[in-house]
Amino acid sequence: MPSPLLTLSAVGYTPHATPILTDISFTVMPGEFVTIAGPSGSGKSTLLRLIATLLTPTTGTITYAGRPQSSYEKTAYRREVSYCFQQPSLFGRTVQDNLTFPYTIRQQPADPERLTAALATMSLPAAMLTKPITELSGGEKQRIALLRNLLFEPKLLLLDEVTTGLDAVTKDTVHQVIAEANARGVTVLSVTHDDRELAQATRTITIAAGRQEVSA
């Protein structure tokens, strides 16, 4: 039996007086597609941010690939465990600035053909590379943001309601890209309200009011 990619043991997050998350424990196996469901404000995004090391748990431990999360060098960890934000904001001036960023931080030259091929997977034209980010629609922004996470394939992809607010066609494209990444071996942990994504998942973890609901 393979060892888990991610293990949360009694993880809690109480930044101030009120706890946001309490006693969350679950494991994710390599290659799984796990969804996290639950009402708004229940702490789902916080949970992803804890796993992404953008926040540190106040109690409990997170183990990634057999080692405590805290033992990893942060930049290396975040390049393997890639978090895509809900309503991401793009940076720089053009789409290209965003897509070359993963190359820049790895001190590698960006390959223009690779960038246009990546755009094509999201049904976006090559001409989009030079488009100013201020002229993009919400759906275009979301797809560009997801590409930033996928240009260097992560081991664990954390998705924070990435299809919320997208039209049906764009949603299909994004689902397809995520499913393909998962088929190539990328483990996916996705916060979602989307029925299709919930159906696509191997299993669903439900969080309500900062606590995990015991699955049947």
Binding site: A76, R78, S82, R148, N149
Partner: peptide, 13 residues
Amino acid sequence: RQPLLERLALGAT
């Protein structure tokens, strides 16, 4: 704050 967080999340120093 958000774009800075996104850079961090992508593994930037």
